[in-house]
């Protein structure tokens, strides 16, 4: 009894002393509770025959029926594969590029040039997805698009890229990199700014080249940041930005473009099947959870860097 009392007493004194810190923490905690933990209550509709009017409580249980429906559907299985392929490819090609960009920016000495170049590569991040889609459609248009004009100039036949399943992924991933690589480099630049300058100073004294400094100092120092970013990316592997896909795909390219979220979007549109969509979302979350756990464990094992 005494132990508990003294612990409570300690906690109250602790909160009183550090209240500013807790106050700063509060918005995030509240946000998590309101928008992430509270909605978890609603996840049960994945196992119910849900009607918005009857509400969550009033709807009857149907067990795993929605999951049977999903996994009995070839198009859903295909959407899972497409999601995994598109995400893995964008991870493979999209992840190193911001790091490379950051390293390059770090090596630029002329400040004016550096700032201008940075602004230019950040810019696409602030353009809305609808506009990006418009730019992509125009750029790849068979009659007036810059890409096809180049092909024609080379003496090749123009290609109607956006109706060709084999071209969808490169175009989607490429435009994603174009849009986000610059902005993604900011976090690595910040990490580089945190490297202790004395390391570089002593390296200069020892006669190290810039190349050697990059390999031996910069990269090892930002490696924890890289690994953390990688783990986060892996956790989001199943979350493909579906707005851009919806704006770019056609029935003709569903075979490579249709991902879990777009599949759900179309299913949900016909008949407002929230319960089915919730089931797919739950599946998505479980897979993401396993992925992030695995990535974290591997990273912890080999590099001692981990999210937790």
């Amino acid at each position: 009894m005494n132990v508990i009392q003294s612990k409570i007493g300690w906690f109250i004194r602790h909160v009183r002393r550090e209240w500013q810190l807790y106050l700063m923490l509060a918005p995030t905690v509240i946000w998590f509770i309101l928008f992430l933990y509270k909605p978890m209550y609603g996840l049960q509709i994945a196992f119910k025959d849900y009607s918005i009017f009857r509400g969550i409580e009033g709807s009857s249980w149907v067990g795993f029926e929605h999951f049977y429906t999903l996994f009995g559907n070839d198009q859903f299985i295909r959407a899972i594969w497409n999601t995994l392929i598109i995400s893995s490819l964008s991870l493979l090609f999209g992840f190193p590029i911001p790091i490379l960009l950051a390293l390059m920016f770090n090596e630029i000495l002329n400040q004016t040039f550096k700032r201008t170049a940075q602004t230019i590569v950040y810019l696409p991040h602030f353009i809305s997805t609808v506009i990006i889609a418009g730019i992509v459609i125009t750029a790849f248009s068979p009659s007036s698009g810059i890409v096809n004009q180049f092909l024609v100039w080379l003496g090749m036949e123009p290609i109607y890229f956006l109706t060709k399943p084999e071209w969808f992924r490169p175009i989607f991933i490429g435009s994603g990199i174009w849009q986000e690589a610059g902005f993604g480099s900011i976090v690595f630049l910040a990490a580089m700014a945190g490297v202790n300058p004395s390391l570089y100073e002593s390296a200069v004294v020892d006669g190290a080249s810039r190349w050697q400094m990059m390999w031996k100092i910069t990269i090892p120092c930002i490696l924890p940041t890289i690994l953390i970013m990688l783990i986060i990316r892996i956790g989001n592997l199943l979350e493909v930005g579906f707005e851009l896909i919806i704006l770019l795909y056609q029935p003709a390219t569903y075979s490579t473009a249709d991902v879990i979220s777009t599949f759900i979007y179309r299913q949900g549109l016909i008949g407002a099947q929230y319960d089915l969509a919730a089931a797919a979302g739950l599946f998505n979350a479980v897979v993401a959870f396993i992925l992030v756990m695995t990535a974290n464990t591997i990273s912890k094992h080999y590099s001692r860097t981990s999210l937790w």
């Binding site: 429906t69 559907n73 070839d74 198009q75 109706t163 056609q250 029935p251 003709a252 569903y254 075979s255 179309r266 299913q267 016909i270 008949g271 099947q273 089915l276």
Partner: peptide, 18 residues
């Protein structure tokens, strides 16, 4: 209808464009 139609229609449109 909900269970089958969306998928079947999807398939129709895919073949149609192809």
């Amino acid at each position: 209808f909900d269970k089958y139609w969306a998928t079947a229609q999807n398939y129709m449109l895919e073949k149609q464009q192809a």
